[in-house]
């Protein structure tokens, strides 16, 4: 369903951030991408979100090249992806409820759908009582759960989680991983990047290991191997 075809990315420094990466990910798969900082994990995800263009090669989603999408097609594509980041990236001037509602508004959902779905998805991540809190009034774990709720509310085909546990303590890390696994069990593709050995081992799915912009290992049932 997602196919990276010989993708390379060169920055002006000359050192390649990605060096002809070829990778395919099937629907409903849970893929952990591991590697040191600078291995190219985040660049790979940026390619998938079309935040950056490859210097060479192509990224395909359901057999169409996402970098050839026009603006509106790109917006539609992005609505099929839910994103979760290490730094949460919530809208600071909106409450937890409004942050999630915004993603639904952007996807053109009706007010009725928003009124019924937002409380439901917040209950799902166990934040029903913090609905009207602003991000700065929430703990790191709570912020990340709001971000996950926002990512799944439009029932995307793909969840991209870029170091989602990087800023969290072990208990919150465990909870976030459990939520991601539950989402995957319900049939959503999850792409997770992480440094955390414990996270990778507890997921127990496919592990892609990157180094220096290349894929150096791809194990069906992998462990953290760096």
């Amino acid at each position: 369903m997602i196919y990276f075809d010989q993708v390379s990315k060169l920055y002006s420094s000359g050192q390649p951030a990605l060096d002809s990466v070829t990778l395919s990910i099937a629907p409903k798969e849970f893929v952990s991408i591991v590697g040191h900082s600078g291995a190219g994990k985040t660049t790979l995800l940026k390619m998938l979100l079309a935040e950056e263009c490859p210097s060479d090669g192509g990224v395909f989603f359901e057999s169409s090249d996402i970098h050839s999408f026009k603006k509106s097609a790109l917006n539609n594509f992005r609505r099929r992806i839910g994103t979760v980041f290490q730094d949460f990236r919530l809208l600071p001037n909106k409450t937890a409820y409004e942050n999630i509602a915004f993603a639904m508004e952007a996807a053109g959902k009706t007010d009725e759908e928003i009124h019924s779905d937002v409380p439901h998805v917040l209950e799902l991540v166990d934040l029903g009582d913090k609905m009207w809190n602003f991000p700065h009034e929430l703990s790191g774990g709570e912020k990340q759960r709001v971000a996950i709720a926002r990512a799944i509310v439009n029932q995307p085909d793909i969840i991209i989680a870029d170091e989602p546990t990087g800023n969290l303590d072990p208990i919150n890390t465990f909870e976030i991983v459990q939520i991601l696994k539950k989402i995957n069990d319900l049939g959503t593709m999850v792409i997770l990047t992480t440094h955390n050995k414990g996270v990778v081992d507890s997921v127990g799915g496919r592990v892609v290991t990157m180094d220096g912009g290349r894929v150096i290992r791809d194990d069906k049932k992998g462990k953290y191997a760096l």
Partner: peptide, 16 residues
């Protein structure tokens, strides 16, 4: 500007 990039990421159209 960070807010704008988040809005783009969740797929909001430019005019929105």
């Amino acid at each position: 500007k960070d807010e704008i990039s988040v809005m783009k990421l969740v797929g909001a159209s430019n005019s929105y």
